[in-house]
Amino acid sequence: MSLYRNAIWFLNGIHHYTRKGYEAAAQNFDPKDLEVSVVGRSFMITGANSGIGKAAAMAIAKRGGTVHMVCRNKERAEEAQSDIISQSGNTEVYVHIVDMCQTSKVLEFAEAFKKQHASLHVLINNAGCMVHKRELNSEGLEKNFATNTMGVYILTQTLVPLLQKSRDPRVITVSSGGMLVQKLRVVDLQTEKERFDGVMVYAQNKRQQVVLTEHWARAHPVIHFSVTHPGWVDTPAVSSSMPEFHRMMEGRLRTAEQGADTVVWLALSRAAVRKRSGQFFQGKQDNVRTNDPTASLWICFEMYSCFSGCRS
């Protein structure tokens, strides 16, 4: 990533990714898009105990949807569950404890969920992490890659058959605009060769998510796939993983509800599924494509290799 490209991206972000950027874009939103009831539809949201995930879960529960919260910490998850039920009046909110970094556990959970539930209408891949030092999980995978890419791949790939049985199935993955300053390194997906920088590794993972989304859209045309940048949002994850950025942007970051707005729109609205599947959204606009089928094939080969390892 060049200094020039980084600077241009940051200046663009100041205008478009902040709270003011959201407020300006919101003037063109159609509120009728979200005047929907989703009673009888089921939604799975990873990382749903705080930030964007909790805001999305709350918005869906208030509209009558059945919400499956996939979270790592039981205490925080149950606290968020209680809060969502209390504010929405919807008791169809369930907690599943899964660490998305442990890919074998993700696979185990997804396989069990398929057997226990007749349908799943929407999967929202929201959970993510930014570890600043290179660490491996118990399966020998770099932790950022395991959570942000491999966990997302396994959960989505395993639940595809269940989604395909459902009416109007959708998969939304919460990516990051940071991926725009990174070219996909197809031969170094776990950052073993390059200098390890947590922020850049995270951006690489988010680029990987975009490429996977384009692949899934081609491979599974029955399901509507999308990936979105929520803007710069004031969440516990941002304050803990990027404290200097959080301090610098104090007062200008979007609220969790503003960050979740496009996620909820993609999950609920009829307007969203009129957009072509596989697109990257920024503020309800599908304006970015990587358009690299070779990269898609390579990353899917690598994912499949790791996936096969989890099954063995």
Rank of each mutant, 00 (worst) to 15 (best):
H117V: 01
T191E: 07
A146N: 10
Y304V: 00
R247E: 09
Y153S: 05
D234F: 04
Q258R: 04
D286M: 05
G128C: 06
D292Q: 08
L136H: 03
E214P: 08
L162K: 07
S296P: 02
R63W: 01
Q258D: 05
D197V: 14
Y304S: 10
A77M: 05
T46Y: 09
A217W: 03
N287P: 03
H220G: 03
S82V: 05
S308Y: 09
K114M: 09
S119M: 10
P31D: 02
T147V: 12
N148W: 12
F109S: 02
L11M: 12
R195T: 15
E257M: 03
S166M: 05
G47F: 02
L180R: 12
M69V: 02
Y22R: 08
C300I: 08
E79M: 11
M248S: 04
T91C: 07
M1G: 13
S86E: 13
V273C: 08
W9I: 00
V263Q: 06
S138E: 15
A48V: 07
Y304A: 08
M248G: 00
V288S: 00
M150F: 15
E214L: 03
E92P: 01
V199L: 13
T156P: 01
A203M: 12
R19H: 15
K115G: 04
P293Q: 10
V152I: 07
R254M: 10
T235H: 07
H132Y: 03
E250R: 12
L180N: 09
V264Y: 09
G47H: 02
R274P: 00
V171I: 09
Q209L: 12
V263S: 03
L253E: 04
G178I: 07
H246A: 14
A217H: 08
G89D: 10
R311M: 14
N205W: 09
R207L: 13
V263G: 07
H15S: 06
S269D: 08
N28H: 13
I154Q: 01
M242H: 05
M100V: 01
S82C: 03
G64C: 06
